[in-house]
Structure formats: structure tokens, C-alpha cells
Amino acid sequence: MKTFVYIDHFKGEVQPASWEALGLAKSFGAAIALVFGTGVDAVAKAALEYGADEVLVADDASLADYRAETYASTLTSLASSQSPNLILFPTTARTREMAAMSAVDLNTGVLTDVSALEVNGESFISTRPIYEGKLIEKTVCSGKPVMATIRGRAFPKPNREEGKSGTITKVAAAGEAKSTVEGYSASESAVNLGDAGVIVSGGRGVSNNPSLTPPAGMDEKQAEIWRAQQGFALVTELAQLLGGAVGASRAAVDGGYITYAHQVGQTGKVVAPDLYIACGISGAIQHLVGMRNAKVIVAINKDADAPIFKQARYGVVGDLFQILPALTEAMKKKLGK
């Protein structure tokens, strides 16, 4: 059994689920990591340390910026010449596109968002959530190679063996780019909800602290956003203490309190952290579908009747502006930080 594992990175920063895919590949047999880009030696080396049997590196100017077309064509060319049985990807914005396109080239299919993958003779049976997690289906792909994008945090991450060496083979890039990257502005804070073990989220409630007096000269909307930013500062402080990420409800995003990249739910990200702390979020179905698979859910809300409490393992009826700082303090003490 030969598996390709595509290591997804953005400017050298690897999406951790890539390593989880590598671990899964190893459980089936030979795992060959694919690294595309320019100046990606460190990523290739890391792939060996995480257990890749070999790394194929396409280091080419045409791959400097991710473009779906060239990345897909390079993948198609490698798959055609080396005939892997399986190609695994972490599920990310980029891999959905390049796997989608390469599957068209190779006349095969993509199993997406896979949370379990079993081998059955020549075929792979994937398990994946559908209908916003209301159902679970098993699917198979009759094409060759089988392509599958795996869910973050669904498979164990292999141990890293520092300094482990192995074969790194240079391969050629293929295809022609059909677009250009004109610029890039980083998020103020890295938002990596998919891989976060802990997420602390804020909703419309983070703007509700009448006792805070905004700086003079702000109109009502500006004052609301300013208040919300004070609220999100508390959310962020707890998230950072717990080594987690900051999430948000759509009301918070629509209110201009925080960027869309933080949104959890139906039209945002679907997440499954070990711990999810919802602050000032009512618990609308469109939010719940994005986070109800978290292992432990904590809800902090002023309203004892808020639907979020029905999903929560622990609930606190109270003002987040009082509870959050106290919780951060208590955690600091107990965790010895």
C-alpha cells in the first residue's frame, strides 16, 4: 500500500492536521509526503521527523504562491507517474480546491471531511458527518487513487523524532497558473479554529457592559464596537492562558466586533475542540451545529433561559464581564501560570 500525504502549509506554516494525515497513512503502509512551494526545506525535514518514508518536494517559482491550478496539476502529474493507492490531505480551504481539481484530472473522487477511514481489501470506507452533523454516512470511492481530506483532530498526531533523516526527492512542478496573487494581509491574530484544543468564543453579549465609558467623540455604533473589544479582550486573555483560539458568533461578526475568520457555525467554521467556552452567546441552531461536537462545553450567559445551556456540560448564569476575569484568575492560580 502506497499513500501520498499532502502537507498543507501557508508560507511555511504547516496545518497540523497534515501530520495527523501522515500518521494515518503510516498505519496503512508506506507514506510519501508531498511538499509544494518555494524554500520549503524546513517543511520537508519536518515531514521526515513526523514519520514520512520519503518526501517529494516540488520547489518551483510557479508554486511560490498557492494557486489551485498549478498545485492540482503538480499533484496530478505525481499521482499519474507514481500510482499511489491513496492520497490524504488535511481538510483546508486550499486542499479542498486542489484535491477537487486533481480528482477531475484523474477521473476519481474525493472523500471529504473524513473522521474515520477503514481499509477493506482494495477499497477505503470513509465515515463523515453530513447535514450539519445531524447524520453520519459511510462512503467509498471507486476511482484510483482514492483521495480523502481528513478532519482536524480526528486522528492521532504522530510523535516527532527530531533530527530523523530520510530521502528527499526533488520533483517537477506542472501546469499553468490562471491567476496571480496581488497581496496579502495577515489576520491580526492567527485564527486556527480547526486545530484548536480549546476555543473561547464571544457573542453579542461581549458588547453589553453599560458600566464601561467609551472615549469621548464616539457615535453609538463606535461605542458598541469599542465595548465589544473590551469584552473580546477578556475572551482572548482566557483563550491565551489555556493555549486556545478565539471564536465568535455571527452576531459578533456582523456587529463588526471581530473578523469573519473567527466565526463558528453553519456559515463559519465547524469545530470540535476538547473545551469550548461560549460567552454571551444565546445558542441559535446555526451556532450549535458548529460546536456541539466539542467534548466539554461551558456556557456563560446572563439569561438562565438561553438555549446554549441545554448543550452545555457546565453553565454559569452571570455577567461575562465579571465571570471571565475571575475565571482567568482562578485558572492562572490553579495551573500555576
Binding site: 447524520l135 459511510k138 462512503t139 456540560r313 476575569p325
Partner: peptide, 30 residues
């Protein structure tokens, strides 16, 4: 090329919510 072989309802989640109460925010947080 991609076909479904099985469709299932997810395992029922039983979340018994435990409400944390106290006299002060510090006590609740603790």
C-alpha cells in the same frame, strides 16, 4: 465515483448540564 454505503443517526448525546452557582464571581470561577 463516490457513493454512500451506509447512513446512520449519530449516537445520542446525553448532556446533563450542571449549573455552577456561588455568592461571588470569584467563588463561581473557583
Amino acid at each position: 465515483i463516490v457513493t454512500r454505503t451506509e447512513l446512520m443517526n449519530p449516537p445520542a448525546q446525553e448532556t446533563a448540564t450542571e449549573m455552577i452557582t456561588g455568592e461571588t464571581p470569584a467563588e463561581i470561577a473557583e
